[in-house]
């Protein structure tokens, strides 16, 4: 591990932690909490002193695996995103890597939902799978459209390809679809039915103490990562006047993240029994059309 990569790794951990905390605080503030800046700390304190509990014959191995998998997937997905000047993992297939790590969340939620042996988490876990079947294909097509525009699966190349015009300008459909799927990936806000109040909190309904803390931290980290990925993919990465690259990346990430958190309070939940049809019949053809347009543009 050379020095540059080491610095990138450290800045990744720090920025992920800071942004996740900020997202939690912002959400608490929008959610009507007083002293929102300290709210996530208080919540963490509460969960640290909270007793551990166990439901009736749970499959503890699966529950723990799923709980820890959530922050792990977020972290691994983040490795290909340039936090400072360069990513920790400058992979030639960065986009596919991001996609693969984010899909691991399917496993995480299902494992927790199934493992605790309780009806509401079980329903939540299956809801997330149904959600996955709906958002994943439009999401992949959006990513492929980006790769097509850049002619590469390396995220650095994607950023470089936006030197003149950001992808969001000529791939608006892909960008919007990406944002919808970002909400769905992080099961956030309108796409938060897997953890909805109508199933008593869904997947993490039976988690308390440290388990719940790790799960919640993982979820916020995931939200940060999906927001941060929009920046190199669609918003030109660190490009911008006056400020250095890392600052622009930070500004854009905060803007996208703030938008996602805001949407979480402002839009009602979307049920998959209605969204699936919309995703397959409207979103997929629409993103494919976008892909076609981009494919024709990039032809020599």
């Amino acid at each position: 591990m050379d020095e540059g990569t080491g610095a990138a790794a450290v800045s990744l951990v720090v920025s992920l932690a800071v942004l996740a905390y900020g997202a939690a605080a912002l959400d608490a503030g929008l959610g009507g909490a007083r002293g929102a800046a300290g709210a996530p700390l208080r919540e963490a304190a509460r969960l640290l002193v909270q007793g551990r509990r166990r439901t009736l014959v749970p499959d503890t191995l699966l529950v723990r695996t799923g709980t820890v998998l959530l922050p792990l997937a977020a972290l691994l997905a983040a490795t290909v995103l340039p936090a400072g000047d360069r990513p920790v993992l400058d992979s030639g297939v960065g986009i596919v890597w991001f996609n693969a790590m984010e899909v691991c969340v399917w496993g995480a939620l299902w494992l927790v939902g199934w493992g605790v042996n309780s009806v509401y988490p079980l329903i939540g876990g299956y809801r997330f799978l149904a959600q996955g079947l709906s958002y994943e294909l439009p999401h992949m097509f959006a990513l492929i459209t980006v790769a097509l525009g850049a002619g590469s699966l390396r995220i650095a190349d994607v950023v470089a390809a936006q030197r003149e015009v950001w992808f969001v300008v000529w791939m608006p459909v892909a960008f919007v679809v990406y944002l919808v799927s970002a909400l769905a990936m992080a099961f956030w806000g309108p796409m938060g039915e897997p953890v909805g109040r109508n199933v008593a909190g869904g997947v993490p309904a039976e988690l308390s103490g440290a388990d719940r803390l790790v799960f919640a931290a993982g979820r916020y980290a995931l939200l940060v990562v999906v927001a941060a990925a929009a920046v190199p993919l669609f918003l030109g990465g660190g490009a911008g006047p006056v400020l250095p690259g890392w600052a622009w990346t930070a500004v854009k990430t905060v803007a996208v993240l703030g938008g996602l958190v805001l949407v979480g309070q402002r839009v009602p939940a979307v049920r998959m029994d209605r969204f699936t049809e919309f995703a397959w019949v409207v979103l997929i053809p629409l993103t494919l059309l976008q892909t076609l347009v981009v494919a024709i543009v990039v032809l020599p």
């Binding site: 007793g51 009736l56 440290a210």
Partner: peptide, 17 residues
């Protein structure tokens, strides 16, 4: 930290129904 700070033992209970 949780093991140190939280009450001893693991509470068993039924799932929430």
């Amino acid at each position: 930290a949780s093991a140190v700070l939280s009450p001893r033992g693991v509470a068993g209970s039924g799932p929430f129904l």
